[in-house]
Design a protein around this nucleic acid. Structure first.
Lengths: 334, 334
DNA sequence: CTGAAAGCGCTTACAG
DNA sequence: CTGAAAGCGCTTACAG
């Protein structure tokens, strides 16, 4: 690899001058600029990012802090949105590999050693051991789906409450009243908000909530399976269930089918996320849409704004949600 | 951030000595080592990776070159495997953001500026404009599912041919002879090998291949949809179809159902990949299993071996495949 | 408009 | 066993 010295020597100028043309400084004569540019091409010179970063104290790099599996379709679509927004931004994404063999591994120190300019976090619980340290650091951060704020930390999420309320409303309009809710954990904002949405939605229609109908679970298919099994075991089972993820809904529907009942004839099911598979699944899933790739893109865009302008106040962004009615909801049996 | 100088000053030693204890050099007295270690903890010092990389000429970083969407379930599972293997390895993954606004953007130059120690490539076609440059460079590379080799490049793939042959055999045993094949593009090794597998599989059972039954497509659901539409329009339609991805199979099955026929009663369908969703989909998909996460892990492991030992010959690794029979294959109607 | 020099935070011969 | 010094490849006042 040619270095800036090679270019300087070849072009017959100083390294300072080469640096100036690389960085598009105005105080270089056209003649010199041309000569240097030519030499750069000729030598296939490309600035060493580490060296530049060393003096500038940055890395043009954004770290990700994802606590869930990449096979989670939400994460895939989020990453896709992140990738798109990163395109042409000059920043690269780095996946910080956690070192589990080191008992006092610190995500923040890892970011600091790598000089990461910002991080986007997903699936971060309020009690995550790394969270406080991250908020105290001066690393610009955007959380996805967590209402965590800090001096340099903002977040982006979907209209969670409104989304669930729409789902409830849809079921009520179809004539359901024995409505169940498979909630996510209540240690994260998303879980709490969707839970509130359910409660408020029911209240808005003067429906009482049967405590047996509310199950706390995780967002996985297995979680949906388990919760649905419990619900089917009740004396009076619900006629409709609102799930807080598509995966949970898939699990629930499979259980219902396996027990000889059918969706939506016997039980209506609604998901949340509108991931790619909700359309492929059969029956196609009625679900609350979040525009996931756009959440990823916006997270990156505001993160970069925060990085490049330290005055930029950490944003709180809320993306709209809307119900997508497909084939898993219908009127209850008489 | 404390620097090595701060530590040296605080501990009352030289920076050279601090460097030696950081790097576990033996020629440091126990007393000094202890003192320095203590100071490091106290100051929460962590070496700057960029500075270290600058002098060592490396970055402890692996780049990914993925041409498809992250929402592709194969990619998700691959990334998950990669993530696992990276854990505790000391390497971080970097997603090099392509700069489409720059007509002469070069992936290799990007790698060189970032000083990436190695790259794993997926979805790279033989005629990719960046490929030759990459092979000529001295960057250690592992390709996934592409039979590309170079001085510093190896690859890892699944037993593609054998996998398809098993699929054909399964159908023949069920009594099928009008077997169709929805192939991937033939510009990549995977496509060619699976195609060969089909041809050989048919031949092995003395079945002739109806040219109308072989459709070239991409690996997407839309691709499967299109191909299946063509097949259904034939005068004599096949009784079974072997697809080269699960997504294609999902598309094909949806088309079949939409046309009023049923799977597997009217037409048997086999997928390829055994991604997470093949089990969730209903009917659950009969498919050729690839152990995708393990492909990702092995790619990283051999890549790191190549990076750390320049004598390590670029490997060619083949993972086994096996047919997973679920609910989309059955005897043909009489 | 141009360049010499210091410095970013490390590592590594080398001398003692 | 310890440390002074050079150097990795850049950028940035500053002087001219």
């Amino acid at each position: 690899m040619a270095s800036i010295h090679d270019v300087a020597k070849e072009a017959g100028v100083s390294v300072a001058t080469v640096s100036k043309v690389i960085n598009n400084y105005p105080d270089v004569s056209d003649k010199t600029r041309k000569k240097v540019s030519q030499t750069i091409k000729q030598l296939k010179y490309h600035p060493n990012v580490a060296a530049r970063g060393l003096v500038k104290g940055r890395s043009w790099t954004v770290g990700v802090f994802v606590t869930t599996s990449f096979t989670n379709p939400f994460v895939s679509e989020l990453l896709e949105g992140i990738k798109t927004a990163l395109q042409n931004s000059g920043y690269d994404l780095v996946l910080l590999s956690t070192r589990f063999d080191d008992p006092n591994y610190s995500f923040v120190e890892h970011c600091l050693s790598r000089n990461v300019d910002g991080v986007v976090g997903f699936g971060v619980a309020r009690n995550d051991p790394h969270l406080e340290e991250l908020l105290e650091s001066d690393i610009a951060t955007m959380f996805v789906d967590a209402d965590i704020r800090g001096r340099r930390a903002g977040y982006i999420t979907t209209e969670n409450k409104a989304g669930i309320m729409q789902a409830v409303e849809h079921l009520v309009e179809l004539g359901h009243s024995r409505i169940s809710f498979i909630s996510g954990e209540l240690d994260k904002a998303v879980g709490v908000l969707r839970h509130e949405g359910f409660m408020e939605g029911m209240k808005a229609h003067n429906l009482s909530v049967n405590p047996d109908y509310v199950r706390i679970s995780d967002y996985s298919m297995e979680g949906g399976t388990r919760a649905m099994n419990d619900l089917l075991a009740l004396n009076e089972r619900p006629t409709a269930v609102v799930c807080t993820s598509d995966m949970m809904a898939f699990g629930a529907i499979n259980v219902i089918h396996r027990s000889g009942l059918s969706v939506p004839e016997d039980i209506s099911v609604i998901g949340f996320d509108n991931t790619y598979y909700s359309e492929i699944f059969s029956p196609a899933l009625t679900t609350v849409n979040q525009n996931i790739p756009s959440i990823g893109s916006h997270a990156i865009e505001t993160l970069i704004a925060m990085i490049e302008n330290s005055d930029f106040a950490p944003s709180v962004v809320t993306e709209p949600s809307n119900l997508v009615v497909r084939c898993t909801t219908a009127k209850p049996r008489k």
